[in-house]
Amino acid sequence: MNRTRTFLYQIRNSPLHLFLIVTSAIMMYPLIYGLFASMVGMEEFYRAGWMPMPTSLNFINYISIFDPTVVPMMVRSVGVTLFRTLWYAVVSGGSALLAAYALARLRFRGKEFVFMLLLSSTMLPGIVYQLPIYIMMARFPLLGGNDIMGQGGSGMINTMPSLLLPGLVAPFIIFLLRQSIYGIPIEYEEAARIDGANFLQVLWYVYVPFLSPVFVVILINTFVAQWNDYLWPLMVVGGNPSLLPTGLFFQRMMAGAIPLKNVQVAVPGGTITNIPLILAIATLATLPTVLLYSFFQRYFTEGMQGAGLKG
């Protein structure tokens, strides 16, 4: 009887499923197209219609990407990205936790002002900061060949610090954590205090466990943001091939600026761009964030709810 009910329930929901299946397929179309097209040869690709169908698991384009000359560069690029992820997650996550705790739980004058001040920067477009910070990085005194007046050299441009210094205070994470802290009953903190816990212990043993889903969200978001970061790395490390984060690295690879064989292919009668290979690079560059999100999407929704974004 239970099975019948489930069955009936599903029948009733079938238009809903149909709609969701069709729309989800539309949403995934560009990525699936990229994946499939990356597994066919050039000739097949030009014969294929709106969806190239690989007849077998053909990884020839992926093998082309993992060229011995390109692999070390790719490893470096991924390394730079992972390091940035860890750095931003720890530093901006840690400072945001402290700030959020202060702004949620401590009573002091000017609290609302500080909160609004921090939050106001999320309302301004990033470009307002980027050009001036770029100049500040370039003219930083006594670094990168600069004299005490900041002239003569290149400061922090094309070095790692320029990828690590801006954006360490993240107002949106502060906002998210503050909302989450409001959702945690204050009795827990009081109980811990009665047991003699100091501020740090309270934070570590009471709040951090509650906030761990939010931290997972922060970590994933940081990774996605760092993996895809494009404009700022282009401005500050575009001239140093050994420091390119992945977003810039793979985009350059697609545009042919990283020496990769077979991007231009000789066919009888001409040279044409190897679009399946380009799409293979795109697929490879997209895969990590997609897989990571897919694995953690349960935490993701929980984290969002934990953050009290409940309406």
């Binding site: 949403m27 996605v224 895809n228 999407q297």
Partner: peptide, 28 residues
């Protein structure tokens, strides 16, 4: 409904892709 986690994932995946790389694909 069944499989709503999957739908949710599928609808969200475009958000985690790189703008530069997707733009390069759109050109193709």
């Amino acid at each position: 409904i069944r499989a709503r986690g999957i739908y949710r994932t599928l609808w969200y995946i475009p958000t985690v892709t790189s703008g530069a790389i997707i733009s390069q694909m759109v050109i193709v």
